[in-house]
Simulated scan of single mutants.
Amino acid sequence: MLGRDWVTASESGGCVEVRRGEDGGVRVRNSRDRGGPVLDFTPGEWEDFVRGVNRRTFDLPEWHPGWHAAP
């Protein structure tokens, strides 16, 4: 369960941090730019997002040379 403190949301210890918002939603930020923008999700939006991740809805196609960086 998320609390009010930022927690790293990746197994590698980088990239994304999340925490519970005061409204019960979820806040997400880049762990490498903690002073940068924060995404705010309502509880329903977050549930939909997590459901999509679990269903692999957001999986990207294989990398191709036109992208800026290889995975």
Rank of each mutant, 00 (worst) to 15 (best):
T42E: 03
R29D: 12
E62C: 01
D5V: 06
R29W: 06
P71G: 09
V38Y: 05
W6C: 13
D40H: 11
D48E: 13
V53F: 03
D48L: 09
V53A: 04
L60E: 12
D5E: 15
D23H: 07
V26T: 13
D40R: 08
P71D: 12
G52L: 08
A70P: 05
S12P: 00
T57N: 11
D48I: 01
R56G: 12
G21D: 15
V26L: 07
G13A: 05
G25C: 10
S10L: 09
H64Q: 11
W6H: 14
L39W: 02
T42P: 03
S31A: 12
G13W: 01
W67S: 09
R29M: 11
G35R: 06
A9N: 13
E47T: 14
E17T: 00
R20L: 15
D5P: 01
T8P: 00
E47L: 09
R55H: 11
M1A: 15
P71Q: 10
E62P: 09
P43L: 07
P65V: 05
R56Y: 06
G3C: 07
T8G: 08
R51I: 10
F41N: 07
T57C: 12
V16E: 01
G14S: 14
G36F: 05
R32Y: 10
H64D: 13
T57G: 08
H68A: 14
C15M: 12
G21Q: 03
R34C: 11
E45N: 08
D5F: 06
T8I: 13
G21M: 03
C15E: 14
E22G: 13
F58A: 04
D40M: 01
L60Y: 07
D40F: 02
N30S: 10
R4L: 15
T57M: 14
D59H: 11
W63H: 13
T8L: 12
L39Y: 01
D48V: 04
D48Y: 02
N54G: 12
N54K: 15
V18N: 09
L39R: 08
D48Q: 12
M1I: 12
P37D: 13
H64R: 15
P71V: 10
A69I: 09
E47V: 10
V7P: 01
P43S: 06
L2K: 11
V38A: 05
T8D: 02
R51Q: 13
G44T: 08
W67M: 13
G25F: 05
T57I: 13
T8R: 09
D40K: 02
G44F: 02
D59S: 13
V50I: 10
M1T: 15
D59Y: 07
V53E: 02
T8E: 03
V38D: 03
V50F: 00
G3H: 06
T42L: 04
G44L: 07
H64P: 00
W63D: 07
G36W: 06
V38G: 02
E22I: 07
G35T: 06
V16Q: 01
T42R: 03
G24Q: 04
G24S: 05
V7F: 08
W63L: 04
